[in-house]
């Protein structure tokens, strides 16, 4: 797997050089486009990250966990996972540290950490992806895809527990 990337470089650079492309200036032009793009998404990401930070610091995330815990328990999801399921869409680093804690506390092969790992692997930091993909465009019609993803993330939590119980 790790050989793919060096191989890609060899193929692309050799073909480009053979076709008399100025590889250096092409590369720089591409990197320049990258810079322009990064600058264009920075404000959006800043706003979204502030929202995520404030949601965690003010205890909204904890309150939501507490409020949803009974419903989650009814679906067979342990409380530790409820927290992970709620933080994951907001913060990649936050959920990774939570996952590490869970795995260390309960042991790597326990039911809870297997569930947590499955859940972590099958969901994304939805709000970050949202900011990145929809940055710049301020059209309507963005709620629909977000709702579809929110529902499937909730499903991931239930399914992760079910699968780990069976397998």
């Amino acid at each position: 797997m790790s050989l793919v990337i060096p191989a890609l470089f060899i193929i692309i650079f050799t073909v480009a050089a053979a076709k008399k492309v100025n590889v250096f200036s092409s590369f720089c032009a591409g990197a320049g486009d990258g810079l322009k793009f990064t600058l264009s998404v920075l404000p959006v990401i800043a706003a979204v990250f502030m929202m995520c930070a404030i949601a965690q610091a003010s205890g909204i995330a904890d309150a939501a966990t507490a409020a949803l815990a009974p419903a989650m328990r009814a679906l067979g999801i342990p409380e530790e996972l409820a927290k992970l399921a709620i933080i994951k869409p907001f913060s990649g680093s936050g959920s990774l540290s939570l996952l590490t804690e869970t795995v260390k506390e309960y042991g790597a092969d326990s039911y809870i950490s297997r569930c947590a790992c499955t859940l972590y692997a099958s969901s994304e930091t939805v709000f970050y992806v949202y900011a990145l993909y929809f940055a710049g465009g301020n059209k309507k019609g963005r709620a629909l895809p977000l709702a579809a993803v929110a529902f499937s993330s909730a499903l991931a939590a239930v399914l992760a527990c079910l699968l780990c119980r069976v397998m």
Binding site: L8, F9, I12, F13, V15, A16, K19, V21, V23, S26, F27, C28, A29, G30, A31, D33, G34, L35, F37, T38
Partner: peptide
């Protein structure tokens, strides 16, 4: 981005 867009521009220019 600098890495991947740089590389993909090279690939693009080379067709």
């Amino acid at each position: 981005y600098a890495l991947w867009m740089g590389l993909s521009r090279v690939a693009q220019d080379a067709g």
